[in-house]
Structure formats: structure tokens, C-alpha cells
């Protein structure tokens, strides 16, 4: 990191933000006026996706062969997570009848987010472009917003598939209430439709960024005080925070997946 030389010219808060933010454009790309430039977070997203696809495809060879016996080792571990997502997230929310339809989507959410989260914990990506710090792709609201928009459409598709196009929109407002209440309720429900994915976006991005901000803030006194004992203290504290972050990585992936499942489930089984 080049923080030491910049320290004199920039306030520490700004440096921390720079370290958790996305890099500048690495490959300039624009199609039809849309900026599709490749940045550090795009590369991290691709690394995570490539890693996930590779590991998952190698691990699931036995299933494609039609082997139904219980696996051992890593595949068993992976299968335990898949079975847990299916039985603890998918089935209780969307129902056993729709589990096969929505489980792949929710499993992909969970595994892709958890892979990106953990990738953000590995501080080697500071070497991709411009010497910026070890950021997390899921700490970027653009990425989490894109994921939340997928959830947003999944909610609508699930409702329309189950109740028909008009049935779904009617379900947004609970029945059996006096009509004047509709004037309050309809805007609230329409707002809720957008607030849910927005909350998903902010929750994941903020949580994944917060850990890095905390770690950088704990490292900052080393550069401010130039004292080796402060360094020892900072490192010890950050080792602890890293372990905490590992929990956060799993929990936030779980929360995003769970809430997506809950919203899809609410769309399939509306309130009465």
C-alpha cells in the first residue's frame, strides 16, 4: 500500500474510503452509450464466479453420474450447505412444492455472495490496479443493487407465475379492508416493493464495507504514530476482527438469501 507516502497529503478518513472503494476503470468499455468498463470489483466478481463454478462443477461430478450415495470430505461439506440452504431457507419460505424452481436461484445467490465475501477478506487484490486496498466486491452498492434487482424481478415473476399477471398485483394489497384504507395502504405496499430490494442492497454492501473500514481504522494509527507497539496492537486486534468478518461473510450471504426467499415466498403465498 502506498498509504505511507500519501498520508501527509490526504486525511486518513479519505484514505480509508479509497481503500474500500472500487478501483478506477481498468479496461474502458462502452456499448451504446452505456459504460461497461471493467474495474477491480468486476475482476473480483469474475474470479469469485470462476472459482465457484470450477469448485462446484468438480465437486458435483458424482451427482451428474447419478451417484446418490453419501459423499465424503469436501463434497460432503458442500452437500451439507446445499441441503441446509434447501431445508432451512428455501423450503420453509417458498414451500416444498416450489423448492425445485427457486432453490437454484437462491443457492447461486448464497454461494456467489459468500465466495465474494471471503474473497474480499484476502488482501491480495490491492495489487490489481492503482495500489488500492483489499476491498470486497459485495461491499459495492452497484453489485449488491444488481443482485437485489434480480431478487426484485424474481419476486414479481414468482407472483405472476403463481397467481397470473393481475392476480399478483391484486395480492400486493391485502383483501377485506375498508376502501379508504387503500389510499394509505396501496402507496405503502408499492413503496415496500422497492424498499425491500433497497434494504437488501444497503445491508449487504454496508456490512461488507464496515468490517474493512474498521480494520483500516485500526491500522491507521500505525501510519499516524509511526510506533511499532501500536503496530503489534493493531495486528492483534485485526486478527480478531478477521475472524469476526468470517462470521459476517457467512451471515450476510445467509441474510441476503433468506430475505430473498422470504420475499419470493410472500409473493407465492400472499397474506390473507
Amino acid at each position: 500500500m502506498s498509504a505511507g507516502t500519501e498520508q501527509a497529503t490526504k486525511p486518513i478518513g479519505e484514505l480509508i474510503i479509497e481503500h474500500v472503494a472500487n478501483s478506477d476503470v481498468i479496461v474502458q468499455l462502452s456499448i451504446g452509450g452505456f459504460d461497461l468498463s471493467i474495474t477491480k470489483h468486476v475482476i473480483m466478481l469474475w474470479i469469485a464466479a470462476g472459482l465457484l463454478v470450477t469448485v462446484a462443477m468438480i465437486s458435483t461430478r458424482r451427482y451428474r453420474r447419478g451417484d446418490i450415495t453419501a459423499p465424503r470430505g469436501f463434497v460432503n461439506f458442500l452437500e451439507t450447505i446445499v441441503a441446509w440452504v434447501r431445508s432451512a431457507i428455501v423450503i420453509p419460505n417458498v414451500g416444498a412444492g416450489h423448492a425445485t424452481t427457486y432453490a437454484p436461484l437462491l443457492l447461486t445467490f448464497f454461494f456467489l455472495i459468500v465466495t465474494m465475501n471471503f474473497l474480499g477478506l484476502i488482501p491480495i487484490f490491492s495489487y490489481i490496479n492503482h495500489g488500492h486496498g483489499g476491498t470486497t466486491a459485495t461491499g459495492n452498492i452497484n453489485l449488491t443493487a444488481a443482485l437485489a434487482i434480480i431478487t426484485f424481478f424474481a419476486i414479481i415473476v414468482a407472483g405472476v407465475k403463481e397467481h397470473g399477471f393481475f392476480g399478483h398485483w391484486k395480492n400486493i394489497v391485502p383483501g377485506g379492508i375498508p376502501w379508504p384504507v387503500m389510499f394509505i395502504l396501496v402507496p405503502i405496499e408499492i413503496m415496500g416493493m422497492f424498499v425491500r430490494p433497497f434494504a437488501l442492497t444497503m445491508r449487504l454492501a454496508a456490512n461488507m464495507t464496515a468490517g474493512h473500514v474498521a480494520m483500516l481504522a485500526i491500522f491507521a494509527p500505525i501510519f499516524m504514530l509511526h510506533n511499532v507497539y501500536v503496530g503489534v496492537g493493531s495486528v492483534v486486534m485485526n486478527v480478531g476482527i478477521t475472524f469476526l468478518e468470517m462470521i459476517v461473510c457467512v451471515v450476510q450471504a445467509y441474510v441476503f438469501t433468506l430475505l430473498s426467499a422470504v420475499f419470493i415466498g410472500m409473493s407465492i403465498h400472499p397474506h390473507h
Binding site: L36, P104, A146
Partner: peptide
Amino acid sequence: GLMFWTWVTFLVVLVILGTKAW
């Protein structure tokens, strides 16, 4: 850019893993 690539990547991963792994 990041939003676009997130969608593309997610959908590719979803299609590959959805049909071949999950």
C-alpha cells in the same frame, strides 16, 4: 459497468450451476 457485469456473471453462473450442479 459493475451492475451490467454482475447481471451477466450471475446469470451465467445461475445457468451453469443451476442445471449442472444444483
